[in-house]
Design a protein around this nucleic acid. Sequence first.
DNA 1: CTGCAACTTCAAGTGGACTTGAAGTCAAGC
DNA 2: GCTTGACTTCAAGTCCACTTGAAGTTGCAG
Lengths: 165, 165
Amino acid sequence: MTSTGERLPGGELTIGELAARSGLATSALRYYEQLELISSERTAGGQRRYHRAMLRRLAFVRAAQRVGLSLDEAREALARLPENHAPKAADWAPVARTWQRRIDAQIAELELLRRKLSGCIGCGCLSLKKCGLYNPDDSAADLGTGARYLLGDEPPTKEGAFRRP
Amino acid sequence: MTSTGERLPGGELTIGELAARSGLATSALRYYEQLELISSERTAGGQRRYHRAMLRRLAFVRAAQRVGLSLDEAREALARLPENHAPKAADWAPVARTWQRRIDAQIAELELLRRKLSGCIGCGCLSLKKCGLYNPDDSAADLGTGARYLLGDEPPTKEGAFRRP
DNA sequence: CTGCAACTTCAAGTGGACTTGAAGTCAAGC
DNA sequence: GCTTGACTTCAAGTCCACTTGAAGTTGCAG
């Protein structure tokens, strides 16, 4: 039994099969079930049998994680989607829109950091008050200005007087 | 004593001041010092006094975290920069370039996810074989369990809860 | 029917990045 | 010199998402 192929009648999956198909460890699946992210039926002997719809739920959870949600938040989001059938566009659209906004925000943040790093390549600073990286909460766009300190132009705040610890 | 203002002569900072200026908790600073991310001198009475250059190191560490590095990796990266003075362009450029590549990869991943979500708005699926979200093995699903809050964007519960098995 | 991989439960462990608590000491303003 | 807030250490705790281990059971091929 390779556990990868689906061979149960009725299209149900053992935990090993679900693991193989979802890319998650069996331990993770049991953990998810405990958290009620997925559910199963049991055989007479007590073994889990998963409906194929669980693959969809797992895909959802994985996507949720990538968007930055915790498993708890994923569970909440799942609760708003239909349990037994594939979500319809009407179910899905609001969730997807919310997630896209989060993704956009994340991308924007990364792009800001990227720009700051570019600036810092130019200035080699990390010591200047104006340096985006240095300044924790600047959020104010200092984007273009970075190239000012091009040639190791030393900062006004005399930093030179210090010796190492 | 508000602990925010700098008032020691010689420009040294108490741990409270460094905390206020860096935005980190004092406990985090002690922890960082333990990890040798920063260093201090001590007063006769045993209290820490931080050189202002530590602000620069902390800025670096914060940036490193946002790029997705662990504190250990941040320490390694720090080790390649000059300790006592602001890094020059030659010191900084290779680091910044490496980080930019990482950022680019992260942005690319997010953009892929975003596209997939767009597709799913259209199809309302999550159940179809062709659905990008559904299909698990499209590689590099690293953001999921990896560097999730590298954007500093709203950690799920308390400030600064990072994770990763 | 046997053998064995795959399954079961439950408790405890892991790892990263901190935080919290207890019990005590330091520094500075009055 | 007293008071008080800021500091000290060290051990232990927390959070999340799992993983590991032990000890036992199930299910299917041969």
